[in-house]
C-alpha cells in the first residue's frame, strides 16, 4: 500500500525527519506515537505534499507521490485529517463535505457518510465553524472519506476532544476500516486510544522511529515510557 522509504524533511536548514521508512498493508491501522515536537505533524504534512521532502520516496500502490501537489495526491488515493481539523469555518457542514468530493466529481454525498455520522446530517446547514470540537473531527473525517481514499492520514485526532467521544471515534475508525478496507495511519499521544484501534505501533523520537511492534506483542509500558516527559 503506502511505502515510505528514507524520507527526510527539513525546515530551512534544520532537518526534522531523518530518513524515515515504513510500509503499511491494506486495511491496516498503524499508530505513530510520539510526544509533542517529535515530528508527527511534519511527517503527515510531507506525506500530503504540504511540506516538500528533502529526499526519499513516498509510493502508494507503486505510484511515486513525491513531487506531486496535494490535490494530485488526493486524486491518487491519499486523504488527510489534519491536527486541529481545519474545517472551513464559514462553509456549511454539507459544503465542507463537498469540498472532498470535488476531486471525484461526485454530486451526491454517499448515504454511508451520514449513517456513520448522523450528527452531521442534523447539522448539515450549520456553518462548520460553529460545531463543537468532536463534531468538527467527525466532519473532517467525513470530508476525507468522500474522496474515496485508499490511505487515510489522521494527525492527533483525539487532541482537544472529550474522553466519551474518543471511545466513539475508535469504534468508527475500525468500522470505516472494515467497511472500505481502508489503510489508516494515525499519529497519537493518547495510548489508550491507540491501543483501541491500532494493529501496529511505531514510536517516533526526534524524527526517527525508535520502536516498532504489532499490537499483540506490544510492550505498553515501554511505549508509555516514550510518551512521558
Amino acid at each position: 500500500m503506502l511505502d515510505v522509504t528514507r524520507l527526510s524533511v527539513a525546515y530551512g536548514q534544520s532537518e526534522v525527519l531523518h530518513s524515515l521508512s515504513f510500509a503499511t498493508d491494506k486495511a491496516e491501522i498503524v499508530a505513530v506515537m510520539g510526544r509533542n515536537g517529535m515530528g508527527k505533524t511534519t511527517m503527515m504534512k510531507s506525506l500530503m505534499g504540504i511540506l516538500p521532502s528533502r529526499s526519499g520516496s513516498i509510493r502508494l500502490e507503486g505510484t511515486e507521490l513525491g513531487g506531486l501537489e496535494s490535490h494530485e495526491r488526493v486524486a491518487h488515493g491519499l486523504a488527510f485529517v489534519p491536527q486541529g481539523r481545519m474545517i472551513f469555518p464559514t462553509l456549511t457542514v454539507e459544503e465542507n463535505i463537498r469540498t472532498g468530493m470535488v476531486v471525484r466529481k461526485k454530486s451526491r454525498i454517499p448515504d454511508e457518510i451520514f449513517a456513520l455520522f448522523p450528527v452531521l446530517y442534523d447539522m448539515r446547514h450549520r456553518r462548520g465553524g460553529n460545531l463543537s470540537g468532536g463534531q468538527q473531527q467527525q466532519l473532517a473525517i467525513a470530508r476525507a472519506l468522500v474522496a474515496d481514499p485508499k490511505v487515510l492520514l489522521l494527525d492527533e485526532p483525539t487532541e482537544g476532544i472529550q474522553p466519551s467521544i474518543i471511545k466513539d471515534m475508535a469504534r468508527v475508525l475500525k468500522e470505516i476500516r472494515s467497511m472500505m478496507s481502508l489503510t489508516i495511519v494515525v499519529s497519537e499521544q493518547v495510548l489508550s486510544f491507540a491501543m483501541d484501534v491500532a494493529d501496529r505501533f511505531l514510536v517516533m523520537e526526534n524524527g526517527e522511529f525508535v520502536y516498532e511492534d504489532v499490537a499483540e506483542n506490544v510492550d505498553e509500558t515501554k511505549i508509555a515510557g516514550f510518551l512521558s516527559v
Binding site: F88, P89, T99, V102, A147
Partner: peptide, 22 residues
C-alpha cells in the same frame, strides 16, 4: 462546484489542496 472551490481556497488554501482542490 466552482464557487465551493473558490470559497474553500479563500478560507484555507493549504487545507483546500489537502481536500483535493486544485
Amino acid at each position: 462546484t466552482w464557487g465551493l472551490q473558490v470559497r474553500a481556497v479563500t478560507q484555507n488554501r493549504v487545507m483546500a489542496g489537502a481536500a483535493g482542490i486544485n
